[in-house]
């Protein structure tokens, strides 16, 4: 992992088109980041992304077609 030290208003660039700026720092240690990136890149808070990722993995953790067939049979 690359560790860069930045202060308020300073930025880092990733590649040619991703720019991350420290827009605000709070006394409690919380940091606000502004992120400019192409809309082909999705940006999320890590904990939320991981929660959705885990839920998606759980949602495909079985044979969906078997489940669908079973559901159709129960309806009949």
């Amino acid at each position: 992992m690359i560790v860069l030290r930045r202060t308020l208003g300073q930025a880092i660039h990733i590649g040619d088109d991703i720019r991350i700026v420290v827009t605000e720092t709070e006394v409690n240690g919380r940091v606000h980041l502004g992120i400019e990136a192409p809309n082909t890149i999705s940006i999320h808070r890590l904990e939320i992304y991981e929660r959705i990722q885990a839920e998606n993995c759980s949602a495909v953790n079985g044979n969906v077609m078997d489940w669908l067939k079973g559901a159709s049979n129960e309806e009949e």
Binding site: I48, R51, I52, E55, N56, S58, A59, N61, G62, V64, W67, A71
Partner: peptide
């Protein structure tokens, strides 16, 4: 809505957050 039929024996779950 993405459905999850495998995580709960009683309910089919739907992910409203994503």
């Amino acid at each position: 809505l993405v459905l999850n039929p495998f995580a709960d024996q009683e309910w089919v779950l739907a992910n409203m957050q994503a």
